[in-house]
Design a binder for these strands. Structure first.
Length: 116
DNA sequence: GATCTGACCACCG
DNA sequence: CCGGTGGCCAGAT
């Protein structure tokens, strides 16, 4: 019996799988996630996939930000505030501009994997 | 299957 | 930096 595998499209399943592999304290942009999955033009699809998460999942969705290291989650649902909180809780620091230094926190699956 | 929406991105001025 | 535009694509209706 699988942990959390509702009936989802393979695309969504792959997004969740990759996001799950992002180490603590590291982040990935929507575009990067899409590219790593072999769909360089599906950045929006990644956002859609994450927005469709239900309760009880084990996907660290907060480790996905936009290409500028900014949080683009819906503020009206106070999701953005939660995301920032969770990231800071993992040691990710935000600059005064409210952005993350992608040069430092952007993660890449292969070699430099600092599983923390 | 047509149409709309959006937690994206690149390009331009 | 800010705003506008076009393109892309997965989901929802």
């Amino acid at each position: 019996m699988r942990p959390y595998v509702p009936d989802v499209s393979p695309f969504r399943a792959s997004v969740y799988a990759l996001v799950r592999s992002i180490p603590r304290g590291r982040v990935l942009s929507y575009g990067a996630v899409a590219a790593l999955l072999g769909h360089p033009r599906s950045a929006r699809g990644v956002g859609t996939a994450l927005s469709g998460l239900s309760e009880g999942h084990d996907v660290p969705w907060w480790r996905v930000v936009n290409r500028n290291g900014e949080i683009t989650s819906p503020r009206i649902h106070h999701i953005a505030a939660l995301q920032r909180k969770l990231l800071e809780g993992e040691g990710v620091k935000f600059r005064a501009s409210g952005r993350i230094d992608m040069k430092e926190y952007a993660w890449s699956p292969s070699p430099d994997s600092r599983t923390d």
